[in-house]
Amino acid sequence: MSFVEYAEFIQDGDVAIIFMSHDSMFPVKVQQGGQTQTRYGVIRHSTDLIGRRFGSKVTCSKGGWVYVLHPTPELWTLNLPHRTQILYTTDIANITMMLELKPGSVVCESGTGSGSLSHAILRTIAPSGHLYTVEFHQQRAEKATEEFGEHKVGHLVTVLNQDVCKDGFGVTGVADAVFLDIPSPWEAIGHAKAAMKRRGGRVCSFSPCIEQVQRTCAALAEQDFGEICTLEVLLRVLDVRAVSLALPDLGKEDEGGLPATPNATVTCRTAMPPREMAGHTGYLTFATKGPV
């Protein structure tokens, strides 16, 4: 198992996702002799997990069952331990495409945070790309390094514990793309530019507040970035269900006849928007650095 390469069978040392239901899953570190408690009873790693195929149904000690899934960056985003606010898949998908990431891309990112986006970037740039991720919080930087190792993507990433606004990304002239998710992105635009390849590249800044966006756009324009574009993407999850609608009784044309069948209903399948949903995550500002 690795976050950048599928495996068929579960092995000692893997990370697997225990799936109980759509809104109830969690990651486990598979260890010979290890045990995991669930509300359906115990999962014994040696017998229930190791050697089984990813995607298997596993019966727990109390008779309930769960599915064991191969980790993906998307499942990880839903299950990772939060050390900060994280980026979710909808924004990540757009960041990945609009930054034109692909195998071989060299990317700079700050901050690392909980590593939600980092995992998605690593998946896309493997096997030959590299991620330089800068985090000013020492424990978070250390934890991220540890996780990248456990997820077998350590060879694709360099974690730096420093302040990107002061010290930059630690590299110059290598990046195809730069991503910023920091409180004052405008202070890091110069460093972003310096980190990028001479032939140019793409940059993205994620900010929840419009005031941050304004200052960032001004800084981007000042540093000669082109194609500056700010957008917002929201996800609407539709609930598929069958609803039954009662038919009204409009009476009969011949009034003397029998009364219409009471309680007549029609069932229709529909997809409903949620009563409440995330209405804002952050603004995504993209720009292009031209060739020099």
């Binding site: 799936f19 966006v213 304004q214 001004a218 957008l231 996800l235 609407r236 999850v237 539709l238």
Partner: peptide, 27 residues
């Protein structure tokens, strides 16, 4: 979605739609 729920073999089914809005950013 309905057919897959009936026949099994898939989980984590989600029907979604995204909403996209661009902004003019000027002082």
């Amino acid at each position: 979605y309905t057919k897959l729920r009936e026949q099994g073999g898939t989980i984590n089914l989600q029907l979604t739609e995204t909403w996209l809005r661009h902004y003019q950013v000027l002082p």
